[in-house]
Nucleic acid binder design. Structure first.
Length: 485
RNA sequence: GCCAAGGUAACCAAGUGGCUAAGGUGCUCGCCUGCAGAGCGGGUUAUCGUGGGUUCAAGUCCCUCCCUUGGCUCCA
């Protein structure tokens, strides 16, 4: 049974899909005016993990993630660069999808673009208009939040008193005068010179920010969807407004479970270009593998903020290596043949393994608590190192195969236990890889001879040369193994 | 100012009422090694920001204060 922390109700709830065996999931995507940064990666990995975990548990997942390709940022950036917003979007989407591939993020089932959905948005606003939830002001169409009961209660923990609301500085906003209520939001924005626009019953203009998500979510997933996700910054007003307009149109619950991922800060500060601590994901991938970044992100509970800093990377990398090494050791482990092992011992090991597997899955079931689950994975590793790997033939082939199957299974959503698979996919057929391996082996075979002859000084020089070229050597007595750092 | 998120060991990070507060990194000792590293094993540190309160029982619930970060409306 999967439990989800529902942000709207602020509590942990049992997940019950609308349709048995199917999960409908909508996640607010990015505004495609720039290359992706670490914060985008965080959100993308968090919801990818959730999506894939559902699939691991046997659900069929319909996963929609939109691209916002028209808004002020888009228009400003396109004008700065002297290109169309369409071209800007194409470029940014390409980069975003490159990031997805690097982080082993499965492509969403549907990836709609706002500008392709404008006729549906106009229909949607018409319906809102017919039901009396809108008004026009200065050529734009607004949603009248006072027509909706409990609008202020959405995602709100504490009641704001009328007095506080009156005192807020934003009541002096330039746009406040166009609205009836300060919380009202724009559905259709009147055309401004030099901006892209579309025809509508209210004149030329473009859609407001919130409308696109409601329209696309309902179009592809239905009037009520199981899960809606996004960054914590979208809770209010974006998601609040999505609920308001969607439920006003349909009269039904829009979303059953709301989920929000925490921010990613850098050195205790928000990433921002003006502070110069903006980390582009493409730059990051030059020095760190996508597998590793994925692991780093999954090591935090999705709801919590991550405080990123470069010096944390090293300690995290070491723990990842431990997992990957375990997987390798397990595959190479000699199991008990016939009745050579102690039956009692084998059954004890089996019980311990089953218990830790169960705890791992329980942690994942409880709101996808990946770091907690990782704790149990390490307990499993430690149990093996301590009780099984020290001697041969401690477990049966069945136990070994079961565990490998389990690890391969969870790797379908973790994506970092067995990096070999992914690397092979990328690099298979490369003659350079083959040649490089042969060359390295030749050098190390030579070093082996040198060591046998006890010319240690020369052997150490060869070792240093290779290490300086990022080839990590592990000596086991006279034998060796190596890998690229 | 208002709103939101957070403050758990040297560092990272779980734990939201109930056995000795997961796990990782670091440090340290041992095994291994020609040596080093890597690896493996043992050991190691937490009055859970502060002060009160509720309870048989609180890191976990309520209140005070302090600190960090973010948001404050056609910015996402």
């Amino acid at each position: 049974m999967i439990k989800i922390f529902n942000d709207l109700k602020n509590k942990l709830e049992e997940f019950k899909p609308i349709k048995e065996g199917v999960v409908t999931m909508y996640v607010c995507g990015v505004t495609v005016y720039d290359s992706p940064h670490l914060g985008h990666a965080r959100s993308a990995v968090a919801f990818d993990l959730i999506r894939k975990y559902f699939e691991y548990k046997g659900y069929r997942v319909k996963y929609v993630m939109n691209y916002t390709d028209v808004d002020d940022n888009m228009i400003n950036r396109a004008n700065e660069r002297g290109i169309s917003i369409y071209k800007l979007a194409q470029e940014s989407i390409a980069l975003y999808e490159e990031m997805q591939r690097a982080l082993f993020i499965k492509s969403p089932t549907v990836k709609p673009r706002a500008t392709d959905e404008i006729p549906d948005m106009i229909k949607f606003i018409k319906k809102l208009d017919e039901k009396g939830f809108t008004y026009e002001s200065q050529g734009s169409v607004y949603f009248d939040t006072s027509k909706m009961e409990n609008y202020k209660g959405l995602f709100q923990k504490k009641e704001i008193s009328e007095q506080d609301s009156e005192d807020d500085q934003f009541t002096q906003s330039d746009f406040a005068k166009d609205k009836k209520n300060i919380e009202d939001f724009v559905l259709w924005k009147k055309e401004k010179p030099g901006e892209p626009s579309w025809k509508s019953p209210w004149g030329k203009g473009r859609p407001g920010w919130h409308i696109e998500c409601s329209v696309m979510a309902m179009k592809y997933l239905g009037k009520t969807i199981d899960i809606h996700g996004g960054g914590k910054d979208l809770k209010r007003p974006h998601h609040q407004n999505e609920i308001a307009q969607s439920e006003s149109v349909t009269g039904k619950t829009f979303v059953n479970y709301w989920m929000h991922n925490g921010f990613l800060n850098i050195d205790d500060t928000k990433m921002s270009k003006s502070l110069g601590n903006f980390i582009s994901l493409m730059d990051m991938l030059k020095n760190h593998s996508g597998v590793f970044l994925r692991y780093y992100l999954i090591n935090s509970y999705y709801q919590r903020p991550i405080n990123f800093s470069m010096d944390k990377m090293d300690q995290t990398l070491l723990s990842l290596k431990k997992i990957q090494r375990f997987y390798k050791n397990l595959n190479e482990y000699s199991v008990a043949k016939g009745k050579s092992g102690s039956v009692k011992g084998i059954s004890e090991h089996k019980n311990q393994i089953e218990e830790l597997k169960k705890q791992f899955l329980d942690a994942m079931d409880t709101d996808f608590n990946s770091p907690k689950a990782m704790g149990y994975l390490f307990s499993l590793i430690n149990y093996f190192n301590k009780n099984i790997f020290i001697k041969k033939n401690q477990i049966s082939n069945k136990i070994k195969e079961d565990l490998i199957e389990f690890l391969d299974g969870i790797d379908s959503f973790l994506g970092f236990i067995n990096p070999q698979v992914k690397e092979d996919q990328e690099e298979s057929g490369s003659i350079w890889k083959d040649r490089f391996e042969k060359l390295t082996n030749t050098i190390l075979d030579f070093r082996k001879e040198v060591k046998s002859a006890k010319k240690f000084e020369l052997a150490d020089q060869i070792r240093d040369l290779l290490i300086n070229n990022k080839i990590k050597i592990s000596d086991q007595g006279i034998d060796y193994s190596w890998e690229i750092e």
